[in-house]
């Protein structure tokens, strides 16, 4: 059933070494790829005339502490021409950098800033990597699993710096 998916077939033809795993769950196809080829794969998926995954719906991170590699970056792609969705995942370790896909889909600019803000993953070749949801002097990356929900200083009264 999974092999009927044109995108998966083409990916397997072109990047057979980088495809680590293909899964289908509830009619959704997920492809786990190696980090070093993510830029090439995304470029191929967005520019190939049959596939045309031109809408990057979402780019987010997931923290799988204590597994190694710790973080997973998930790309949700959508092809407006074929009305098809695809999920690409890749794993990155804690102090490694990720290539940025901002050159392919401009919307990744803000999504990657958000992943950097909340997880601490640095993206190479990003034009403007700084915090987006929290303020500039903030210490820590809240969405990591070892960060408390209430924040590290929840029992101290809050004093804003004016």
């Amino acid at each position: 059933m999974v092999e009927n998916n044109l995108a998966v077939k083409k990916l397997r033809e072109k990047f057979s070494v980088s495809i680590l795993e293909v899964k289908t769950f509830r009619d959704e196809t997920t492809v786990l790829v190696a980090k070093k080829d993510i830029l090439g794969i995304c470029q191929f998926l967005s520019s190939d005339p049959d596939l045309q995954f031109n809408l990057l719906t979402d780019l987010c991170g997931v923290d799988f502490l204590p597994e190694k590699p710790r973080f997973e970056i998930v790309y949700h792609l959508c092809s407006l021409k074929n009305n098809q969705r695809l999920r690409i995942k890749t794993r990155v370790e804690e102090n490694e950098t990720m290539p940025s896909v901002e050159s392919i889909w401009k919307v990744a600019n803000w999504y990657e800033r958000e992943v950097y803000d909340l997880f601490g993953i640095v993206f190479e070749n990003h034009p403007d990597l700084r915090r987006i949801l929290l303020w500039d002097g903030y210490q820590g990356h809240p969405l990591r699993k070892d960060y408390p929900t209430e924040g590290p200083d929840f029992d101290k009264p809050f004093v804003p710096e004016v």
Binding site: C60, D63, K106, V107
Partner: peptide, 15 residues
Amino acid sequence: YRFRIRTPSFANLSA
């Protein structure tokens, strides 16, 4: 385990 919300205004505002 992970609760991710893809909101339309985020991408719309980035444009």
